[in-house]
Amino acid sequence: MNESADNSNPESARRQWQGVPSAGFTDWLAELDISLAVTTYQVGKLLLVGRDTQGEMAISSRSFRRAMGVWTDGDIMWLATAYQVWQFASQFDHKARRAGYDRLFVPRTAYTTGDLDLHDIAVDAAGQPVFVATLFNCLATVSHTQSFAETWRPPFITTLTSEDRCHLNGVAMVEGRAKFATLCHVSDTSRGWKQHRMHGGQLWSIDDSEPVVTGLSMPHSPRWHNGRLWLLNSGVGYLGYVDLALGKFEPVAFVPGYARGLAFVDHYAIVGLSKPREQNRFGGLALDDELAAHNMAPYAGLAVIDTTSGQIVHTLEFTGSIAELYDVAVLRGVRRPIALGLSPDELRYNVWAEADGNRRHWRRTPRK
């Protein structure tokens, strides 16, 4: 595994971690011509997983405090962080191409939101970001004059308040519109959801402002794929889909870890996994019994699931300091992506422009 240096955080050299792929993982990336964006808020990283010119897995990492939801179409990327929402744009760069990269993402726009406990982020048909402001129990978008603009709130939340009453965490987009959301319990009191982690979770219809599925355990990452709504019943450890007519969750595959982050390519689901720990909200759930029943050890990383068989066909395990992930997104047609971080020299001494019909890039040497 090759890992690019991360110069955007002076502590990065002290943080040791490694990505360990299963035998066929990198070949699978090549077969589908994809790479992956993965976030870990625990160590504050955006990880870009691809393959180098020799066909080996390569991971580029950049530091962003509390990196959470990530969305990309391969040219634009949005990232939710501790108190900002970042938009990246893909830039043409001869030096990056000579080094073997085929996509360079540069942070172009930052919206300062303050601490909203941002979770999922997506983009609507108009190109506007839609994100989950979990602390404020609502869906929202960016504002040029305020920290955020609320777009939807569950009707049982009586006021806009920074109390994380229901732990709203996930949003599913359908044809460019926010259509479904996941939450951990119907509660209108501060952190009232925490006493109902086992069976209080629900999937809600945003159009109807009504629950679609109840009795879930800490559900996350609702996603619409090939005409079907999928989600992670995280507290039990299952990937599954929702029978919208019956209002029922249908489990498809058990995954060995606390599942958050879900993306699809063809008939494969890519699930992000974290290690459950007794001292946080991941411990003491039915997931513990399910792991024992399946005789499986939890890990932090990715599980690739063939949704036609329900089998885990590939894995990427993170060892060392990375124990928790949040989100994963697919970059189609991208072999090896890289991103600039927030290093002052990277941002100051790289300049791009379009002039006379050509794209140009200047990389200057920092002054002594």
Rank of each mutant, 00 (worst) to 15 (best):
A329W: 07
Y238D: 10
S343T: 02
D102N: 14
R359D: 08
H294V: 06
R281S: 15
A323R: 14
R98I: 14
H167D: 09
R165H: 04
W352S: 10
G100C: 09
H220G: 08
E3C: 01
F131R: 01
A263F: 08
V174H: 15
S217P: 01
R335C: 07
W352V: 05
N226G: 01
Y241P: 00
L347T: 06
P276W: 05
A245E: 15
G201R: 06
A323Q: 15
Y299D: 03
L244H: 00
A99M: 13
R364W: 13
P154R: 06
M77T: 03
W362Y: 15
D289H: 07
E324W: 12
V174I: 15
N358Y: 11
A13S: 13
F282I: 00
A297Y: 04
L160P: 03
M1P: 06
R223L: 03
K248D: 12
V38L: 01
L342R: 06
E210V: 13
Y238L: 03
Y268P: 00
S343G: 09
S274M: 11
I270P: 02
M296P: 00
F254N: 06
S35W: 04
R15A: 01
L291F: 05
Y101K: 02
A58W: 09
M173Y: 14
V328T: 10
A67C: 12
R260V: 03
L46H: 07
R103F: 03
L262G: 05
F136K: 02
V130A: 04
P251H: 06
V236H: 09
G50W: 06
N358D: 07
V142A: 12
L203Y: 05
G320V: 04
R153E: 09
G247Y: 10
L246G: 01
G55Y: 14
S321M: 14
F148C: 09
P337R: 02
D124C: 05
H94I: 13
Y268R: 15
A99K: 11
P222A: 13
V49F: 01
K248V: 02
G310Y: 04
R15V: 15
G227F: 12
G192V: 11
S209E: 07
D327E: 14
R359W: 08
V330G: 01
A292G: 02
Y258I: 03
H361Q: 12
L285T: 14
I206D: 12
C138A: 13
K248M: 08
P219T: 10
G24L: 03
R14H: 11
M218T: 14
G170H: 12
P211H: 02
P276I: 12
T112F: 14
I322M: 13
L291Q: 08
G170C: 10
M198D: 13
N295F: 03
T315N: 12
R65E: 12
I59R: 00
R62Q: 15
V330L: 00
P276H: 03
R165L: 00
L203G: 09
R363N: 10
L273Q: 11
F25M: 10
E317C: 08
M296N: 04
T159F: 00
D6Q: 06
P251L: 04
A80R: 02
Q311G: 02
T161S: 12
R177L: 12
S217W: 11
R348D: 13
L285G: 05
D243Q: 05
L46Q: 07
